[in-house]
Design a protein around this nucleic acid. Structure first.
Lengths: 130, 130
DNA sequence: CTGAATGCAAAGCCTTTGCATACGG
DNA sequence: CCGTATGCAAAGGCTTTGCATTCAG
């Protein structure tokens, strides 16, 4: 993986975002520093970096792909109205399941557990008229 | 909500699918019974029925919208390679979180909790060459 | 040098929508 | 009858890709 200024800036911009932006948001921000960068480059680098483990591609509901500079898996809250994503400020219990058959995962490879609450965020909750 | 034969067949086809199909899969199956149905009608009815609560629109990762005839919320397993979805054969513990601030949900409306495991399903696990 | 990365634009995939027509209640 | 639902096709949003060019090592 070659070091390029595009990749650097994309990573830096993402790192400053705690709101799990999509590619287009990152693109707009990166353009302030690299006006000639293309959307394709942003998509390509987000893919490459998430595959190398440098960043996380969120596996949650919603219609766009979102990225997170935080690698450590953690639960999210998604507003069904405005689409905003928040980190949940608490941890998941280790013993998540009951009545789990011991052999269910035989033959499967379990990689990840994604936890997502949905509902209305604070600002959408207060703006039923909009 | 008017009763139409398109809606009936879509619901019937979905009810026979436990693999959480997308709109195009449902469309192909429904066409066997209603050859002149359009994809748009399938999408429209899936939306209408999920909003009325007759079926569930899955809120999980992946690039297509998937539907479930089972209304009761339950955890899923998604294969990152082939995209197949399985129901998990066990329940979620009631006390899911620890260190949860009591007032976190103040101002928010919590509607749903989505739980999704990801990994490799049985057939993809055994076919690393494909 | 040489292959990986980029910019640009076109294509792709899935989903939604406008509009005239058909049909359920 | 009236208004919802349909079929059709076009448009839309987001993402990926082909290709010539540039650039990092």
């Amino acid at each position: 993986m070659r070091k390029t200024k595009q990749r650097d800036v994309i990573l830096r911009v993402l790192s400053e975002h705690m709101d799990h932006p999509g590619a287009d948001t990152i693109y707009e921000e990166v353009r302030k520093f690299l006006p000639r960068i293309s959307l394709g480059t942003v998509y390509r680098n987000l893919d490459i970096m998430s595959e190398s483990g440098a960043i996380t591609k969120l596996e949650i509901g919603g219609s766009i792909k979102r990225f997170d500079p935080v690698i450590n898996p953690h639960p999210h809250f998604r507003c069904v109205k405005c689409g905003s994503i928040e980190d949940l400020p608490f941890e998941i219990n280790k013993s998540l399941f009951s009545d789990k058959p011991d052999n269910w995962d035989n033959g499967r490879t379990i990689q990840n557990l994604n936890i997502e609450y949905t509902g209305l965020c604070i600002s959408c909750n207060g703006n039923s008229h909009s």
